[in-house]
């Protein structure tokens, strides 16, 4: 699947990195880094990451 994060919305809360470490991580500067494509088998985790984002900045699409 494809992952898009609206970086204008993202406020680096880091909840996504807890829910789906396969796709999202917070770097040492406290900023989000993420994979734009991950295997569909991780859909549940990535959906959860999108759900728990406080500012709802994560979009999931078909690869």
């Amino acid at each position: 699947m494809k992952i898009t994060v609206d970086l204008d919305k993202c406020q680096d809360h880091g909840q996504c990195a807890i829910a789906a470490p396969v796709a999202f991580r917070m770097n040492d500067e406290g900023n989000l880094e993420y994979e734009t494509t991950v295997e569909d088998s991780y859909l549940d985790e990535v959906e959860e990451a999108a759900d728990v984002c406080p500012v709802q900045a994560i979009l999931i699409g078909q690869a």
């Binding site: 809360h13 880091g14 990195a17 807890i18 470490p21 991580r25 917070m26 040492d28 406290g30």
Partner: peptide, 10 residues
């Protein structure tokens, strides 16, 4: 605190 610490806190 830096968000990278959150996993451990949770």
């Amino acid at each position: 605190l830096p968000p990278v610490r959150q996993r451990a806190l949770r």
